[in-house]
Design a protein around this nucleic acid. Structure first.
Lengths: 208, 208
DNA sequence: TGAATAAGCATGAACATTCATTCTTTTAAA
DNA sequence: TTTAAAAGAATGAATGTTCATGCTTATTCA
């Protein structure tokens, strides 16, 4: 009795899985260093060293340093996206929708602090390619929907949905940053109160 | 009738004022480039070129590139400090105190967008020296006092003053960032509504 | 007062180092 | 045995920093 070979899932050869492993290690090393020192502050051979590969190996998988940072960016961004879309039903009422969004965001930031820090780095923008930039909007869909609906429900002279969204996102980022810098300690309790405050920001638009 | 020569204010020689002018031009050029491309992304000869001086001239006034960025940092930070302390009386009630703080912050960000951007870039930067890092706290005194007092007036299980402060600061930064990136337009009206929202963040601590 | 000299500053080409990228050699899978 | 991948030394461009030179300002002295 012989097993049927799978059609669309060829067993990866030893070589292929080793290559996949190398790519993963390179991306992880690059993420750590870019998050810590920024793009220009990170040398490619350093990435290689931390990944445990030769410098030349990086160039087998990534054409330039910019390719590498874009790959890291897309990886982190899609990780964020999958967290933020988890268990989200855009048809729900905005209160539970916001609660779910907040939980997802907190989970992402706590489980992936390095990705979070990397994504919040300012000096990205110039070297990101079009594809990387385009992912921005999909990621924020849940919070955008929330702000949009809160704005429509309220008075006509409300703050724009985009501005409200930016403030909520900024407040969360500010909180995490303060935590990282040691200005305050962020624990479960802090995050619950912060959620309440951010929810009030949204809710104040509905009931002025 | 001869004018009395001032004692403690010697008239700067032509040389001295030329030197002062050069330092100013170097600091301005460095600020612009660092704000735009970050520390590692900026070449010293570029700074010299934009300042209209020779590359070597920079090294007459600043020992290293790191000295330069620290000087720029201190300059921007002290500018921010003077804005934030303007017309502030720490004994006032927190509502007018917050209003004054917000106005000062808005004024600074609008009149000095490049300084604002630069200061937000330099987050947890390994190349800032101790003196640069220490200025942080004095600058935030007004908003810290506000958050501290709102926290004391309210219930005992409030969000910490530091966390609240971080969220308000973050919300403002998020708003300005969204403006710069073109996600939304920030005008006088937006800022007024944003102020109201941030005030509610504080006020919610007092009246839960 | 004004020419002559000294002192110090600014310059930018040159130097040394760092770093992205290439390439030859070595290693290992097929 | 063939072929492809990995390694890391080599390469060349970029960049922080220095330094010999020319120039400007200040001072001296006729």
């Amino acid at each position: 009795m012989t097993s049927v070979p799978p059609i669309d899932k060829p067993i990866p050869s030893r070589r292929e899985s080793a290559a996949q492993d190398k790519i993963t290690r390179i991306l992880n090393a690059a993420l750590e260093l870019f998050a810590e020192r920024g793009f220009h502050g990170t040398a490619v051979p350093e990435v290689a060293k931390r990944a445990g590969v030769g410098a030349g190996t990086i160039y087998r998988y990534f054409e330039h340093k910019e390719d590498l940072v874009n790959a890291v960016f897309r990886s982190s961004k899609s990780k964020l996206k999958s967290y933020l879309l988890e268990s989200v039903n855009l048809e729900s009422d905005i209160k539970p929708l916001f609660h779910q969004f907040w939980q997802n965001l907190v989970k992402f930031a706590l489980e992936n602090p390095i990705d979070f820090r990397f994504l919040e780095l300012q000096d990205h923008i110039p070297y990101l390619d079009t594809e990387s930039k385009n992912t921005e909007l999909e990621v924020l869909a849940p919070i955008w929907v929330i702000c949009m609906r809160s704005q429509r429900q309220g008075a006509s002279d409300n703050l724009s949905a985009e501005a409200l969204m930016a403030m909520i996102w900024g407040a969360f980022v500010g909180l995490m940053k303060a935590h990282v810098l040691g200005y305050t300690t962020v624990n479960e309790d802090t995050l619950k109160k912060a959620e309440e405050i951010c929810w009030q920001m949204i809710n104040s638009q509905v009931h002025q």
